[in-house]
């Protein structure tokens, strides 16, 4: 922006203030972020499918809503969700809180001293997953295909338990410093073994549940929790250890859903076998 230097000093300052303001900054970034998908949808609709866009006015108004909504969300995220996640990590690992007043430099820290931290992260993820609308929709569809063998509520609980276990394991990992990929790869092996035994129809669904659970609100707060944790636990670095919680939240629900499917499949079969025995016997 060479030409700004020739301009009036106050104008330059105003320009700076404007570009540095959080809202304007986010708005510009958001317009750029939304541009590709808008271009793709409109381009394919008009050029490839050769159709007019129905309710053009409404669609355009919708885009304005999307832009404003994204800006508010991103600003709110920086003001609330990120600080809150990091704050919770800091408070729950505060030596005063964990060890009481008897804490001194000689106190040995064990991973199990941080039980409130584990309970908090499990509760947080369980609650958000149970209330996740995308998961509710998926659970309903699953009930349809299984012919009632899979109950929507039970499936949601299975997913939520999986995600909660996952995030707990993830926080224990940050506290203990076990390398992330050891645990994730071990998890992959478990998933592969389970796949061999799981009922065929449930496999794609079980694989999808992992991705579905991690919503737009959960991801930032869980990530901030991990980064905050890696920042306050001695010997951990936010860059090396801060990430990874989300990957556990994706992995573990696959295991619990396949486990649940296997259990209900087995129960239905046993029931069928028993009634079959009764018929042949009588």
């Amino acid at each position: 922006m060479e030409f700004y230097y020739h301009d009036d000093k106050s104008e330059q300052l105003m320009w700076q203030a404007l570009t540095q303001s959080l809202f304007v900054n986010k708005l510009l970034a958001t317009v750029i972020n939304v541009l590709p998908i808008v271009t793709i949808i409109i381009g394919f609709q008009v050029v490839v499918l050769r159709r007019r866009i129905p309710n053009l006015k409404r669609v355009l108004l919708g885009f304005v809503y999307v832009l404003l909504g994204l800006v508010c969300f991103l600003v709110g995220l920086e003001k609330a969700l990120f600080p809150l996640g990091e704050l919770m990590a800091k408070q729950l690992t505060d030596p005063q809180f964990v060890f009481g007043n008897g804490f001194n430099a000689a106190t040995v820290r064990h991973w199990y001293d941080y039980s409130w931290l584990y309970i908090f992260s499990a509760a947080l993820v369980f609650a958000t997953t149970i209330a996740e609308p995308a998961l509710m929709a998926v659970a309903m569809k699953a009930a349809d295909i299984s012919g009632g063998a899979i109950q929507p509520t039970a499936l949601r609980i299975a997913v939520a338990i999986g995600a909660a276990l996952g995030v707990t394991l993830g926080t224990i990992r940050i506290v203990t410093g076990i390398p992330l990929h050891y645990l994730i790869i071990a998890g992959y092996i478990v998933v592969v073994i389970q796949t061999l035994f799981a009922p065929r129809t449930i496999i794609p669904l079980a694989y999808d549940t992992g991705g579905v659970t991690t919503s737009t609100v959960t991801v930032p707060i869980v990530t901030a929790l991990g980064i905050g944790l890696a920042g306050v636990i001695p010997g951990r670095s936010p860059l090396l250890d801060g990430f990874g919680l989300i990957s556990f939240c994706v992995l573990m629900p696959m295991m619990t859903v396949m486990g649940y499917a296997q259990l209900s499949h087995w129960r239905v079969r046993r029931k069928a076998k028993r009634t079959g025995d009764l018929h042949s016997g009588g």
């Binding site: 409404r58 999307v66 909504g69 609330a80 609100v217």
Partner: peptide
């Protein structure tokens, strides 16, 4: 304030998506 912005933002965002995209 941030949490309210998140709620307002998500509301507008989802409404906008449902209207157009």
């Amino acid at each position: 304030v941030g949490a309210l912005l998140v709620v307002i933002g998500l509301t507008l965002f989802l409404r906008g998506l449902e209207m157009g995209l």
